[in-house]
Amino acid sequence: MISRRSFFTSISALLVGGRALHAATQGSPGGDPEAPADRLSIPEAVQSRPAVVEGDNNGIIQTVEHKLKCTCGCNLDIFTCRTTDFTCTVSPALHRQVVALHENGATPDQIIDAFVTEYGEEILMAPPPEGFNLAGYLVPGLAITAAGTLLAAILMRRQAAAPVPAPVLTGAANVSAEDQARLERALSEVVD
């Protein structure tokens, strides 16, 4: 293990160190005179991303994007996908589409409508509460309400039908002195 690790480290040290040495002699980081001054030594180890623009932090756009699903198959909304899955190329494209619509003066509802027209209902994170989808929203609540009402009704009826409580001391009155003593002895042995 150790030998493998040190071998690997030395290889990479050679690579990185080699570059640094190279850079130092050339006087320009990265060695390539055309490259930007702050170029990473191993740029391919990091995903490249377009720079953040004003619209990216717009609260309205974020809200809209939380309601729309990314179509790459990740099951996430556009906002979450583009800020989490940096390998996805779909969500940045969808994001640009949202930004474009927003900049053209579309309201959030209009943006969502435009997406539904283009991609179908599947684009929504939560189905619109209409038609069969209503079942999705209402069935659990209705089931619980129905069961609860039924339960309460049964309880009420039982309570009403229950006989007047028997005199409370009937049980205790039957306890003989011997039993009473026995019970008290047992109780006194219970750790308090």
Binding site: V168, L169, T170, G171, A172, V175, R182, L183, A186, L187
Partner: peptide
Amino acid sequence: YRMLQSRYAAEAL
């Protein structure tokens, strides 16, 4: 209390 007490007392006995 009395009601429950007498029932559990009976059970315990």
